[in-house]
Amino acid sequence: MKHSQLFIDSLLHPKKLAAYRLLPIGKVIQYTFLLITIVTVFSFGRFIAGVPVDSFNMSGFEDYLDGIKWVLYPVTFIMLFVFTTMLIFAQIALYALAGLFTLKVMKRRGEYRHIWRTTTFAMTWAVLLTMLADYVPINSVIISVFSFLLTMTLVIIAFTKYPKQPMAK
């Protein structure tokens, strides 16, 4: 399955997310790193565009920054990638943990690994909204809460397609 199809389905077809719980973990990790790369490149572009050297009002510091830009940019990109990776994987793990409790309440069968995969695809909207949040005049807390609710809603919609638990005899 192509990553573009996974991306489109993550955005438009929340019920298909339940079927993607059966994808190999390698494909899910690839998709996760694709999202991480998109966020990192976007953030790095904002960093490059949003850090004018002349705003520091210190000529010696400006000369110093001009001299180390060739080091500053690659190090910044690597640090952005590492921190974004940690953040997104932590979010997926926490959403999946919340999803595990939700799955039990819904009396559906599933393992943490299945929920983790479903959550990865359900987070696509949240990642995109968070990435574009700086361009909207809305408080970041509101964006975060909305992203959380959106992700959990998509996870719950996907859980409706998980198999039901067998009745106790």
Rank of each mutant, 00 (worst) to 15 (best):
V136D: 01
S43F: 05
F101K: 07
F42E: 10
M79V: 11
K2G: 13
K27H: 08
F101D: 15
A133V: 04
L132A: 06
I48C: 03
M123F: 12
F56N: 11
R46S: 06
R109S: 13
V105C: 03
K27G: 06
A133W: 09
L11H: 04
A96F: 03
G60M: 10
G50Q: 01
K15N: 12
L80T: 06
F33P: 09
T151Q: 05
W116P: 00
M152D: 04
T118M: 15
T130D: 14
N57F: 14
V136R: 02
R113G: 08
L103R: 06
I78H: 06
I25K: 07
D66I: 02
W70E: 13
E111F: 00
L87R: 06
L12C: 12
L17N: 05
L6T: 04
W70L: 10
P24H: 05
V82R: 00
N57K: 13
S144V: 00
M131R: 04
L129T: 06
K16L: 09
I36S: 03
S144D: 15
L80F: 14
F56E: 08
P14A: 06
T119G: 02
F44A: 13
L80H: 04
I29C: 06
G45F: 02
I8N: 09
Q5K: 12
D134Y: 12
F121D: 10
T102K: 01
S59K: 11
I68Q: 05
G99C: 13
M167S: 08
F89Q: 07
T37E: 00
L94Y: 08
L128P: 00
F146D: 02
F146I: 14
F83C: 08
I143S: 14
Q91G: 05
I88H: 03
A18I: 00
G99M: 11
T160M: 05
Q5C: 03
V51A: 10
I29W: 07
F7R: 08
L129C: 10
F83L: 15
K164F: 13
W116K: 04
G45C: 10
R109I: 09
L154D: 00
P163S: 10
R113T: 09
Y112P: 06
R113V: 11
I25Q: 12
Y95E: 03
K104S: 10
P52S: 01
M86G: 15
V105W: 02
T102A: 12
G110V: 07
L100S: 14
F7A: 15
V53D: 02
T119W: 09
V127E: 11
L35F: 07
V53M: 04
L22H: 13
I68P: 02
G45K: 02
P74R: 09
T32A: 08
F61A: 14
L128F: 10
V28A: 14
T120M: 03
H3M: 15
K161A: 15
D134G: 15
I143W: 14
L12R: 14
K15W: 01
S55W: 03
G45R: 04
P24Q: 11
A133C: 05
E111T: 11
D9V: 04
L65Y: 01
T85M: 01
K169R: 14
E62G: 05
F101T: 15
V105K: 07
G67T: 05
V82H: 00
F159S: 07
F77R: 05
D9N: 13
T151G: 01
V41K: 03
A96C: 04
Y162M: 15
L72P: 03
P137R: 12
L6C: 03
Q91T: 01
L23D: 08
G26N: 11
